[in-house]
Computed example of a mutant assay.
Amino acid sequence: MLYEFDDAGALLKTDLPFPRRTGKVRDVYDLGESLLIVSTDRISAFDYILPSGIPDKGRILTKTSKFWFDRLGVRHHLISTDVPESLAKQFDTAPLVGRVMVTEKASVIPFECVVRGYLEGSGLQEYKQTGEVCGNKLPAGLVQCAALPTPIFTPATKADEGHDENVSIDRMIADLGSELATDLRDKSLHIYKTASAYASQQGIIIADTKFEFGMVGKEVVLIDEVLTPDSSRFWAADVYQPGQAQPSFDKQFVREWLSTCGWDKQSDPPSLPPEIIAKTKAKYEEAYRRLTGK
Rank of each mutant, 00 (worst) to 15 (best):
L2N: 15
E4Y: 14
F5A: 03
D7H: 11
A10W: 01
K13M: 13
T14F: 08
D15V: 12
F18I: 11
P19N: 07
K24C: 03
V25W: 05
D30M: 09
L31V: 06
E33M: 09
E33C: 09
L35N: 13
L36C: 11
I37L: 14
V38C: 07
I43E: 00
I43Y: 01
L50S: 01
L50N: 02
I54Q: 02
D56A: 12
R59H: 09
S65N: 01
K66E: 12
F67H: 02
R71P: 02
R71H: 05
S80H: 06
E85D: 14
L87G: 03
A88H: 12
Q90G: 13
D92G: 05
R99T: 09
V100E: 05
V100F: 03
V102E: 05
K105Y: 09
S107F: 13
V108M: 14
E112M: 09
C113P: 13
C113S: 13
V114I: 15
R116K: 10
R116M: 10
G117K: 10
Y118I: 07
E120Y: 15
G123W: 04
L124S: 13
K128F: 07
C134V: 15
C134E: 13
N136W: 05
G141V: 00
G141L: 01
L142T: 00
Q144D: 14
A147N: 06
L148V: 01
P149A: 05
P151L: 02
A156D: 15
A156K: 15
T157F: 08
K158T: 11
D160P: 12
D160E: 14
V167D: 12
V167S: 12
A174T: 15
L176K: 09
G177Q: 01
E179I: 10
E179G: 12
L180P: 07
L180I: 11
A181F: 04
A181R: 02
T182E: 12
L184M: 08
L189E: 08
L189R: 07
H190K: 15
I191H: 04
S196R: 12
S196A: 14
A199S: 08
A199G: 04
S200P: 13
S200W: 13
Q201L: 11
I206E: 07
I206S: 06
A207G: 15
A207W: 06
K210L: 10
K210C: 08
F213Y: 11
M215P: 07
V216K: 11
G217M: 00
I223W: 02
E225Y: 03
E225Q: 03
V226M: 03
V226W: 05
L227P: 04
L227S: 00
L227M: 01
T228E: 02
P229D: 04
P229M: 02
A237Q: 10
A237W: 01
D238G: 04
D238L: 03
Y240K: 06
Q244H: 12
Q246G: 08
D250C: 07
V254N: 02
W263N: 00
D264Y: 00
D268C: 10
P270M: 02
P270R: 03
P273A: 03
P273I: 01
I276D: 01
I276G: 01
A278L: 07
K279F: 00
K281R: 15
E285D: 14
L291V: 03
